[in-house]
Every structure is written in C-alpha cells, then in structure tokens.
Design a protein around this nucleic acid. Structure first.
Lengths: 205, 205
DNA sequence: GTCTATAAGGCGATAGAC
DNA sequence: GTCTATCGCCTTATAGAC
C-alpha cells in the first residue's frame, strides 16, 4: 500500500462523499477536513468545484473501465456475468451507491463535460451487457421477450436502482433481484448454482 | 382551475425543484422567488427545510397513490399495465425525474421520517406490479425466470432509472425499454399492438 | 504546495412590526 | 400571514506570504 499524494486523496474522498451525499451534498471544507489540508489547497488542484466533479467522474469511469476490461471475452456469457456482478458486489455498501448513478440524478446541476463522461459510463456497461445477452441467445439460452440492447438497459438500470433501494431499505438483498435477472438473461437455469460457485459437473446443457 | 393557496404553491414548486435539482439543489430563496413571497413566509408554513421535505414527500406519494387507486383491479393485467405506464408517460419530462426517485438517492441527507414515506412509495409500486405479474402468470403468460416480486423490483427500478438516463441522454426512448419489459411480463405478445392502442379485433388469444 | 487571511455572497432560521 | 431586518454560519473562491 503505497503513500497517496494529496491529489489522489482528494479524489478518493470525493468519490466517497459523492457516493454518500451527492455533488450538492458536500463542501470543500468537508473534503479539506477529511484529507487534513485547508480549502485553499484544494483550489490549487481543482480551481473550482466543477473541475473536481469532472476529474472525479473521469477517474471513476476509467477505474471501472479498467476493471471491466479484465473480463475475458472468451469466457461464457454466464461466467462473464458472474465476474461482472462480483465487481458490483464489492461496491455494495450500506451507505454508498454508484458515483455515476448519483451524479446522473444531479445532471441539471452539472456541466456538459460531466454529462459526456456519464454517458460514456452508461454506454460502457450497456454495451458489455448487450454482448453477453446476445451471445447467450445465440448459444440457445431461453428467449427473452425484448431485444438484447433494451434488456441490457433494463438490467443496468435495475442494478443502479438496486443500490439505491438497498441503501434506503438497509437490505442488500434488494440489489440481488437485478443480479438474478442478469444471470437468468445469460442462460443460468432457474434455481441452479452457478459455475463460479460450484464445480464443472453441475454445468449441464 | 381554482386559485392555489400559498402553501399549495410552495409544495408544487418544491415538487418541481426537487425533481430537477434534488433536495440539496435548491434554497428557500429559489422557492420564494418562484412563488413571489419572502423566505420568512416559507418558514411560517415550514419552519425548517426538513419539514418541507417531509410534507412534499407525503403529498407527492399521496397524489400518486390516489392515481394508482383508479386502476381497476378487474381489468386484465395487460390493461392495468398500460394504464400504469400512461401515468409515468405523463410525467416524462426532459428535465425532471420522479421526486421520490431523486430523494431516494439523497437518503443520507434526509431524516428517518422521510425515509419511511419513500419506502411506502417504493412498496406501493412494487406491490401493484407484483400483483399484475402474478395474475398474468396464473392466466398463462410466458414464464419469467425470476419470482414475480423480484421481477417487480427490477421493473420498478428500471422505470426509475429510465427517467434518469432519458434525461441525461435527452432521449425519452431510453425509458421505453423498461415499459416494454413490463408489458412483456404481463403477457403482451412480442411485437403486438396493445388493447389500449387498438380496437378489440386485434386482441386475440 | 500549503498556508493565513479575507472577500462577497448564499444559507437556514428567528424576532418583531404591521 | 406577510413583511423588514438581521443573525451566525457556511459557501466557493482569491490574494499573497512562506
């Protein structure tokens, strides 16, 4: 665990503050107190608060994109879906949601430059999900009633909303409904235990 | 169109402000300017801002509950789903989302009393959707891979998220994916035009 | 780079006149 | 009920010393 620069600390705490309270829910003072500097030092790195929002959104998105790039496209759609969901599960927290999900609700208070990155974030997830669902269908998974791209949007939205309602109700299981929906969409048999959780003998056709 | 009391105007503008910018995104001054009174007059009706949040959440939820109560349970699940979705469509707006969807993301900044009403709002929708889906299944709609209550949560979450992404992308069609998902879940045949959109002759078994 | 000091204005909230 | 006036604090942001 290497020492973090002040700039890195500022961004990491900004992630957490936005995920908890939103862009309009924290101040430079909150951030300064967490990092242990004065607010004027924050202005040195991020002259105005919108600069901070933009850089936080860029770095958060880049970080997730990097994680998602490690999901091997050669794996089966079900295996990829399991890995994808594990990434979300690591972020499940009783008082934080997805930073881009939060910022998307604050669209009207954020500049166009941030909107652009948020759209990239949404499309990144939706493209990945669309690919999984299409391949699963091509390989004979049970037919779903709406096109793959639309189902991908529904599932991504349900995962985002799942975090929000899991936090509101203080019950993480609320997020699992969306996860199960994705697994079903990539062909996991109803009630079956997944390949990632159980040895090969369980994976039947 | 009858004259609105100051209190009613305050609440209506609060709905719009929260739907656009969230609870942390507007001030008593914004609200005062919109209604044409001074901020001290707002304090007369709502001594502190949390009082305003609570009353707005209660009234918004009551208003939606009243609308939903007009959906006749004797109608078919598909007809009920169409009516339910029409209620959402009327609210589709290029710069507003659902007020309770917005407030749910601001959970960490709101008091317990507001959380309770938000949970009621979520459960109201989920119960209604669960009922439609269960009945559609009992009447022979194609099997869905996850239980009705879980599918209801997924669809409600996708509808909420759909408003958020429709606003972010400035494309209302993004919300329609979730709507189509619901229609499919209550048995609408793929590609079919609905009973509400077309005369009886089109509704075949 | 980080600090002290400060500006200029916004914030929620209250007291008291009318 | 609505106003004027005001309080005390927080907010983002800047100037300039070290």
């Amino acid at each position: 665990m290497k020492a973090q620069s002040v700039r890195e600390q500022l961004l990491d705490h900004t992630f957490a503050l936005i995920r908890r309270r939103g862009f309009n829910g924290f101040s430079y003072r909150d951030l300064a107190d967490l990092v242990g500097v004065k607010t004027s030092s924050i202005h040195y790195y991020f002259p105005c608060k919108e600069d901070l929002a933009l850089e936080a959104t860029r770095q958060y998105t880049a970080r997730i994109a990097e994680e998602l790039s490690h999901i091997d496209p050669a794996l089966s759609p079900l295996e990829r879906a399991e890995l994808y969901l594990n990434g979300w599960r690591r972020k499940l927290d009783p008082d934080q949601i997805c930073m881009c999900g939060m910022l998307a609700t604050e669209t009207e208070c954020l500049p166009e430059a941030v909107h652009a990155v948020l759209k990239d974030f949404f499309l990144l997830h939706e493209r990945l999900l669309t690919g999984m669902i299409e391949q699963a269908r091509a390989e004979g998974a049970p037919a779903q009633p709406i096109p793959a791209a639309e189902l991908a949007m529904v599932i991504f939205g349900a995962l985002q909303s799942g975090l929000i309602s899991a936090r509101l109700f203080r019950s993480p299981e609320r997020w699992e409904a969306a996860a199960q929906m994705l697994l079903a969409a990539v062909g996991k048999p109803a009630g079956a235990t997944s390949a990632a959780e159980q040895p090969a003998e369980a994976a039947a056709g």
